[in-house]
Design a protein around this nucleic acid. Structure first.
Ligand SMILES: [Mn+2]
Ligand SMILES: [Mn+2]
Ligand SMILES: [Mn+2]
Ligand SMILES: [Mn+2]
Lengths: 219, 219
DNA sequence: TATTTTATTTAGATTTGTCTAAATAATATT
DNA sequence: AATATTATTTAGACAAATCTAAATAAAATA
């Protein structure tokens, strides 16, 4: 199966949007890929032809098992490169997504196997997302909760659900990164903001928009 | 100047073929890129439009200073990635060219600066070719001679002029790599073959075709 | 249910990169 | 110099990926 970069990007987007086994809409894909719905329809026909998606007019799109397999390979490459950039080239977590977006399309089984090895076969990327193994298996960790819904008092940051540079830069500035331990000081009902504290530092407040995108596990 | 992958590959080929300031022929580029002369003519018009090459119908092609600058950046990226693959991921020198051929198109100044740093700012790639620095400057080492023309008795392998996997695999099998020291035992006029010896190993014979592609310096 | 709004698809173009076949120019050979 | 050969360009076509504008289907609302 020899896919173009465009086809790979579509497959990856569909995988990302298709939470569980739901069907994905034309518009959602267009928005995700910053393209037009008409283009998505065109591509849908091609990917159906290649048996990577199930698609019937007006019925939405979902990956076939083969399509999912390919999606997992792309995600694996993307996340391994992100690890490389952060761990080996000292990039910060808000800088790596765009570059990995290109590196992920270099297809060489051997390259990825060796890269993974070189990195010590990591199982999560710099944003806390799991890295599929060579067979596409994802180790499911304990399910994470977003900070705005967490109940425990002491939490550890385990991921971010929005990976835009702007959020990551903001978290950088506040000293929040993967593994950071947070104590909940107070929750304000009025705007759903939350006051938190990092060990030995003054407390500060996070808006609902931010806390919604911080995934935590209790300690 | 935002170039497509295809445009970058043309620029790089022209740079490679344009030894010194000679003009490059349509056919030579087509052969190098495994495409058709008609396609080269088409692309020549586009690259001329972008002021990256000088081109007049039937008069051959040459890079403008701007084109050369870009070519050197691509060559830099290509060779740095080759170093990465060999030094960090333990690829052998005959496996890296194809992968680097793709990696070279990931454009990020910061990525390349950091990669170079991570590798210790190497100045030659795994095939002995010089790596341009960030400003496109190539450190010119002592000029190399091909093994079939060398005069000294003791030589050191400093490069290969043909980087096909088949040659490199052959050299691997014979125990010849960069830095290998060779003693010339005998040259046979009949077929221009040459008998050589690596320290502590039985002598063996190299055909003219092979010795032409091994670049050496005398010790 | 009829109507309005939203989502999706189709029709028709455009850009990029490629090709084959035919035409033309340049070069080499008699 | 005439002819043959080789190199290069042009003409016309095609596939991939995109777009806009218009048509149609589905969903939401009145
Ligand atoms: Mn990412
Ligand atoms: Mn991508
Ligand atoms: Mn190479
Ligand atoms: Mn390339």
């Amino acid at each position: 199966m020899n896919l173009t970069v465009a086809e790979e990007n579509y497959i990856k987007s569909i995988y990302k949007l298709q939470d569980g086994n739901a069907v994905v809409s034309t518009n959602a894909i267009a928005y995700e890929l910053d393209t037009k719905p008409a283009s998505v329809t065109d591509m849908a026909k091609k990917l159906k032809e290649k048996k990577l998606i199930d698609y019937e007019k007006y019925q939405g799109i979902s990956l076939t098992p083969e399509g999912r397999k390919i999606a997992l390979q792309i995600v694996r490459r993307h996340r391994l490169w992100e690890c490389f950039l952060v761990d080996k080239l000292s990039f910060s977590w808000d800088e790596v997504h765009e570059i990995a977006e290109e590196l992920e399309h270099v297809r060489s089984e051997k390259l990825i196997t060796r890269l993974s090895n070189f990195l010590g076969n990591p199982t999560t990327d710099p944003h806390g997302d799991p890295i599929p193994d060579a067979l596409g298996r994802i180790s499911k960790s304990q399910p994470l909760v977003s900070l705005d819904k967490a109940t425990a008092r002491r939490l550890e940051v385990a991921g971010v659900s929005d990976q835009s540079s702007s959020l990551l830069e903001f978290l950088n500035a506040k000293g929040i990164r993967l593994g950071t331990q947070l104590d909940i000081i107070e929750r304000y009902e009025f705007d759903n903001s939350v006051e938190v504290k990092i060990r030995n530092q003054p407390a500060f407040t996070l808006s609902e928009q931010v806390s919604k995108n911080i995934m935590v596990k209790s300690l």
